[in-house]
Nucleic acid binder design. Structure first.
Lengths: 227, 227, 227, 227
DNA sequence: GATGAATGAGGTTTCATTCAT
DNA sequence: AATGAATGAAACCTCATTCAT
């Protein structure tokens, strides 16, 4: 298995990046390169999430990463490429975590709980990226044409379908009542989770991150009409 | 009442822009200036929503608005200022529409219906701005430091509270069952509306805009656990 | 007649640039622009002829021309465009002078004399460009693909044909003996003139520019085999 | 005799490069080095003649020559040095061929014929270098200050004098009529040869390379006035 | 008051060269 | 001895902003 195919797998979320790094079989040189690449991406993430794509210069990234500017261009064709790699890599971490969460749990309610917990955990442990992605997911897609956006969107729709299928299975197993459109409910759940977590992010004093992730589920499921 | 205080009021959504324009008391000169200002903002909205803040130059805006570049700087201190004014103005339209909707309707359910309808209507009639705002609301706010974002956030929180108070009143009037945290439910409802409308925006073929705005409410309220 | 069509005509050598400038009908603003454009071209010619296309930066040209760098880009899309305009303009001067020379003169010999005199005169009065063109006529054409080179080459071939036709007419009028291939003789004459003038350019002490331009013709026509 | 002095001699055209290589006295190591040097020069010639000095990077040359970039700097101080060596080496081949040609032949006319044939042969067998040299002989010499150009020019003047001396000897032997300035005639002949061969190079369809090299001499000597 | 020509700081990117391995 | 990763000066070009007309 080559380095690049491993990277590919890591990026598409099939393998964790850490797994790639663990491959002690990799020659020292390759490991070193991967670490450098990672340091550049980290510097990029830090700066992009603080100031946005257009307000960060390649010089700044080079300085933050403590490399010469030319070195950045050894790893990434251009600024866009660096940004794209960065977003893809982070998104893959998220995708892997969410997919895994939805697959684990005794019953459907447990699966949803796990999903919310995963969102919660990723949100808190990857704040800079959350800020970056929410800030620019669409903003940059104007210039970073199609490509990135297309792929991420497709991936997101697949996740929604996975959530929807949990609802469907829950209906069959009589865990939920009649749900007219599971897909739309998935959309609603997902957006509610985001909105709530963003609320906590925006105003930590007023809306502290809840001790118990289930809080979010409760919020969502309290939405019941009486008559 | 001065022109600038009227403008201020219009921008914060207390008075409609049309109202300001109707004031035939305004000398012709002032009316003319307002119209020019508006033309620049419209040109800006068109371009920004198409290409994003950083990919539009002041020259382009000047050309689109058919003014000399110097003229733009007569009305707005700089590019950021123009952008800010543009977003504020549009947001005020939205705020006015939403607040009005929440105030009209026999009972609480009707108020919520009106709110969803207003969102629906504004969304469809102001697509360019929706695109712009969703695309960049946060992206640019990093560079357009504090200012804009702060104010809009505060305004948004006020809106959420207004929705929450509808829920509260609904509980008191026994229209809804027990709702543990009306504010959070408001967050959930609002984000669900947005997510759903964005879905329709992203993939119009797969998710056409619903004939009946109530569809969205139904989606939201189907979220009921059985046991 | 518009400014740009005048410029076009000047560049293709149909009208002299001075003629364009004389049009006192041109609004002052247009005249001013033309003068600036000319100053930039002059600065470019000076520097390019001294150091070659790739060893001159746009900053240098800006400094030499005493303009800000941005101003250069108002007149020329990029460095290549500036270079191209420069070469075309100068070539047009040469083309005009040579064509005119070949058309004036009682008989064919007189025409050739005029041609040599014109070469001689242009050579001496446009030394920087001669240096530039000879230095780079082909060198730059690698990067400044086709375009410029194609056109100049075509124009040069037309000139050769004109010279050849003078030889032909001279044969018909019994001024020259039998010339097997007038076109090739034109090539030979032209290259001889260039070589001789370059010799004088390279080593002015050893080969001073001749007082009498006819010297070059004599050199050329001394090439006679005896047996 | 040291390696470097042999190289020197080879480069100035006094000894053929093959001669240097034949010296089986050279230790294997030295022979190996020479071969490597040669491979680098060949790679350089290929690339420079295709794209011009400034459009070829040292990395490209290293790749084409299948050496590491550092290795190139073991043989040549810098890019300029490599280019200079390359041009000098090729020029030496030309010089050797031309000098030899002018020395062989029964009479003066035969010598000139041989010279033309040599030009013709070298031209066709070293097209890449011809292209490179004609394209950039002067263009680069501005930046590759003095040095190269000075030497080549001197060598060229010596060649011209050699041709002139053939004319002179031809006059003495009554093979040519009265020639006022043999040196200038040499210039004329040489430039005519070049111009004609270039013509064939530029437009092979219109001006095919002649079967018989004497064609060029005929062209040159047809330049005879009648009266 | 309106104009738009002029400015120049600052962005992205390339590539000749060095030097630790 | 050979390598090629790393460097960073310097190139081209854009565009927000000013100010003389």
């Amino acid at each position: 298995m080559t380095l690049s195919s491993l990277l590919e797998a890591a990026i598409t979320g099939l393998v964790r990046f850490e797994t790639v790094m663990q491959k002690e079989k990799l020659p020292r040189r390759e490991r070193e390169k991967l670490r450098q690449r990672q340091e550049i991406l980290t510097a990029g993430l830090t700066l992009f999430s603080e100031k946005g794509f257009h307000n960060v210069s390649m010089h700044e990234i080079a300085e933050e990463a403590e490399f010469a500017i030319g070195t950045l261009y050894k790893f990434f064709q251009n600024k866009e490429d660096l940004y794209r790699a960065l977003v893809l890599e982070q998104c893959s971490l998220f995708a892997a975590a969410f997919n895994e969460a939805l697959e684990q749990g005794e019953d459907e309610i447990e699966k949803l709980r796990n999903y919310v917990r995963a969102q919660y955990k990723m949100f808190r442990s990857h704040l800079p990226f959350v800020r970056l992605f929410i800030a620019e997911s669409r903003g940059v897609s104007y210039s970073i044409k199609a490509g990135l956006d297309q792929e991420l969107r497709a991936r997101y729709y697949r996740l929604l379908e996975k959530i929807a299928s949990v609802f469907e299975s829950g209906i069959r197993n009589k865990r939920f009542g009649n749900i007219a459109s599971p897909y739309h409910l998935a959309v609603s759940l997902d957006s509610t989770i985001h909105a709530f977590l963003l609320l906590c992010l925006d105003e930590p004093e007023k809306h502290p991150f809840p001790e118990d992730p289930d809080t979010i589920l409760n919020i969502f499921f309290q939405g019941m009409l009486n008559g």
